[in-house]
Amino acid sequence: MGIITVDKSDHLFWLGRYTERVHTTLKYYLKTEDVMLDSDPEYYSVLCQKIGIIDVYGSRENFKKRYPFDETDENSIISSLNKAYDNAIVMRDYIGTETMAYIQLAIDDIKKAEKSNSPIVDLMLVIDHILAFWGCVNDIIDDEQIRNIIKLGKGVERLDLYLSLGSSDYEIRREYSRTKGFLKKSGLRYDESVLYTIDSMLDGSDFNYGNVKNLLRNLIQG
């Protein structure tokens, strides 16, 4: 293939971001559900606060209905999945029908989970499909640049979410190191000085998550 245009690089990058957003927010949602079972029924508001979305849910029950399944809620998991699909469908020639199928399966299964008697178990299938999608990205897509742009998107999103969710320094450094590798191999333009600043911050023993998050936003140039 070998020809990446501005438009296509954008779709690949956001395909990586949205699939990762589904993956991490869904995993965190499952943890939140667990906490709400018997420890803190209002714990969903902590999730909203951490990932920076307005708590429009009002109750645990409403949150359970809307956050994973409500297509009209821009912040819902299914909305992120639909956005991943929108970016994937226009890249079928680059990522392949087999790879794309896992996004489709994730959409089909999240819709089934909504009507299921055991939605949590069915939502685990969505995570399986996202993992299979990434497996296909590694296994099926020949073009290294295409793979790296998708993985860059995935890495940037994961870092952004991990910083928001307060993951450990170790996890942040590990994800940053991986993401930096993809960035350099992606062929996308980036701001060297921003990269240097993040490097310096993460080299220190203590760093401010909010500052890294802000810098990350300015790393890749349009």
Partner: peptide
């Protein structure tokens, strides 16, 4: 496009210059 190896485009990345057609990369 996937099966023939042709590039799928909506035309946004194509320009015509000197009566030739070009696909513009990133």
């Amino acid at each position: 496009a996937e099966k023939t190896g042709a590039v799928l485009t909506t035309g946004k990345d194509i320009v015509c210059e000197n009566d030739n057609l070009y696909y513009i990369d990133y």
